[in-house]
Design a binder for these strands. Structure first.
Lengths: 110, 110
DNA sequence: GCCGCTATTCAGTGTTACTATGTAGTGGTA
DNA sequence: TACCACTACATAGTAACACTGAATAGCGGC
């Protein structure tokens, strides 16, 4: 993956995953696949699983183990109230940053 | 500073500073002040200086020492060709990320 | 002589995403 | 039976980056 993207994902990937979960509960393998669909083709599985453990420890998600027909049991993550609050904060932080950067892009773009 | 902002700045602060330098050459103290003006009120001076050393080592900027009337000599940084190329890459990476996030924000915002 | 402002530097810390690998369950197939 | 492909999760070690909390240094005014 591009080094720039790697660094830029720090702090945003968590929000991205929470945003995905805010639409619908999902398990790790599924989330990875969904990220790939959305253009994040190079995000490693290990990265996603590590992130899921983190957001579980922070108490942003509820976890349920569900048997799979095709492999080991799935750990299905669903966003809880705390997670939704955090996601809102994330969006406001993101919006602030995005506005400043858009401004800078315009200024420099002459 | 909010922890979210801290993490989100990883990878973007470098681009922000390069964007500032793309408009006009500047020195560390000045850059810090300019960031504060633009709403990044809590970015530590030490952070900016460390970043400047990094981008100098990467060869994105040229440095000139200029005496000051008000204190120790200033180290004035100006963006060079390599820096401009890197900045362009930065903008394309940023745009990609911003588009995906905007999309996600819309989807989740129902 | 001391304080405030300007200006830079640096050691140590925490967080995060990546690499690389390992473990495990299921079904198909030769 | 043995092997492979796909599904599904876990983890140890690494690199990069922003922050904290200092220290150093030059200048002017009181």
């Amino acid at each position: 993956m591009g080094k720039q993207m790697t660094e830029m994902l720090k702090g945003t990937l968590e929000g991205i995953v929470l945003a995905i979960l805010s639409v619908q509960a999902a398990y790790g393998y599924e989330i990875t696949a969904r990220l790939r669909e959305q253009g994040f083709t190079e995000i490693a599985e290990g990265t996603v699983y590590a992130l899921l453990i983190r957001i579980e420890q922070k108490g942003f998600v509820d976890v349920e183990k569900v048997p799979s027909e095709k492999g080991p049991p799935r750990k299905v993550y669903s966003l809880n109230v705390q997670g939704r609050e955090f996601l809102e904060e994330f969006w406001s932080t993101w919006s602030f940053l995005a506005e400043r950067l858009e401004q800078l892009h315009k200024e420099g773009g002459n």
